[in-house]
Design a binder for these strands. Structure first.
Lengths: 258, 258
DNA sequence: ACAAAAAATGTTAAATTCGAACACTTTATG
DNA sequence: CATAAAGTGTTCGAATTTAACATTTTTTGT
């Protein structure tokens, strides 16, 4: 009964990331190793496993790994970002028009959004889809040229689009913040968009973890004076105190210990 | 400079599902095969590829396959849709402005897109992200109010956005097609968008599997006369022949047997 | 700028794994 | 019940891999 054997291997691969032909052969002593090989071929066709030298790797574990590496390995300070957006969600005001920036930080806010009537606008397609999934009725996705690396839309269309939209509260995630350069990002087109958002928003909330401090990237999209609230996970460097006080910025420091 | 070589291999794996050590060795004659092997080891650690006997498989293609098999189980006529979009990809013309409709059908076109310079515009955020992933430089995402059920944008913003864009070839997937009602969809806002696309496109290509025949949904967004090409998997019902001929529509029937 | 450490690379030969071919058995199918 | 299709076993030459050690290049700390 090949059937049963294959199913057993299949279910092994639900909990084991890797099996060798050798161990499977020992597990099923009444069939030859060649048969095991052929079983794995079948499972490979069904995308249950991938055949590698000496055995097979479970597809489930492979995709999990990929997810992990997308969501966390390449991303730094995941816990900090989580804590920051959790706090940011407290600033959401029902009925208001709220802008959410592109990027890994704001993407995490979805699960902290209370069940109320918000009107969201975002430049991040993944985030927009996430917001829809939790049943929010009013999700505006800014259109434009899509930049795959940054998961954001840019360009003239995006700018025009934003021109038509009113924003009460904007949540932005700069790539850098320094006393000299203010809030910065790595490229012009992204900065261009954020600049418009800042100019249109009544309340500007900047979200950033400590890795952004004293960093200055090529394009400044806002000065310290433009920010109303900064949410972060560590006290800002001392040399920024003057700027913060002068511009009357509220700095909220969250606890990111797990 | 190992750095550049690895990046080259990395980017090869964006468009190639599988590379062999042998071909890589020939591509980089000044390093030994052992070095290539070690490059792949690195890429494996970064989850870019999986090492298999003789070479490596691109992680992106692996996960795509999985996604396909997960979503396909619930979807109907997957094979037909695959065959249809594969054929549709033949109508893509490099350098043209191409519109791709929202929906599960067109979402499948990503892997059939040849490696050339296209300019795509779409109303489907997932599709847009997919197009970016394969490295297309020019992906326009139409903005607007996002309808999570249909994974599409609608509303006044989307309409205005489309107003600014020129379309050479439009690929659309109607929900129904009948002699009496023409091409139809289930809701007004979706139809509104498609109607604009049809009016702006030089060439209109309709993609639909047999399940759409003789179906008439609430909103008509195009008459038979608006279509230039229909790609489907079965001959249209006989009573449509008159309409097809009168409007000089090219009907292409694909083979969807696996 | 220098030395030490770390990373990258090359070469070899032995060990392992693979695959193709053919024969045979069991299970489906009309 | 006959035929086709799928599953299985065995063998051995071919291809691939690994390990180990030597050498070079790059990075890093002081």
């Amino acid at each position: 009964m090949y059937n049963n054997r294959r199913e057993q291997i299949r279910s092994m691969l639900q909990t084991k990331a890797y099996v060798t032909f050798k161990e499977l052969s020992e597990l099923f002593p009444d069939v030859s190793e060649m048969t095991i090989r052929r079983d794995i071929e079948h499972l490979e066709r069904e995308h249950v496993a991938i055949r590698v030298r000496g055995g097979a790797r479970s597809m489930r574990f492979i995709t999990n790994q990929v997810d992990d590496s997308i969501t966390s390995r390449q991303q730094k300070n995941v816990e900090s970002k989580e804590a920051i957006v959790e706090k940011a969600a407290k600033y959401l005001e029902p009925g208001r028009s709220i802008f959410l920036d592109s990027g890994s930080t704001l993407q995490k806010i979805v699960k902290y959004i209370p069940n109320e009537r918000f009107s969201f606008t975002t430049t991040d397609p993944s985030l927009a889809l996430g917001l829809c999934k939790i049943g929010l009725p009013m999700v505006n996705l800014v259109g434009g040229r899509l930049d795959g690396n940054n998961q954001t839309v840019t360009g003239i269309h995006a700018m025009r689009f934003l021109g038509d939209i009113n924003i009460d509260i904007a949540f932005l995630s700069p790539s850098g913040f320094s006393a000299r350069s203010g809030f910065t990002v790595g490229n012009y087109s992204e900065g261009e968009i954020k600049r418009i958002v800042v100019s249109k928003a009544r309340l500007v909330v900047m979200l950033m973890d400590e890795s952004k401090f004293d960093k200055s990237l090529p394009y400044t999209f806002a000065d310290a004076a433009d920010a109303d609230i900064i949410i972060t996970n560590r006290p800002l460097p001392a040399d920024m105190n003057g700027i913060i006080e002068k511009n009357n910025i509220t700095v909220t420091i969250v606890d990111d210990t797990i």
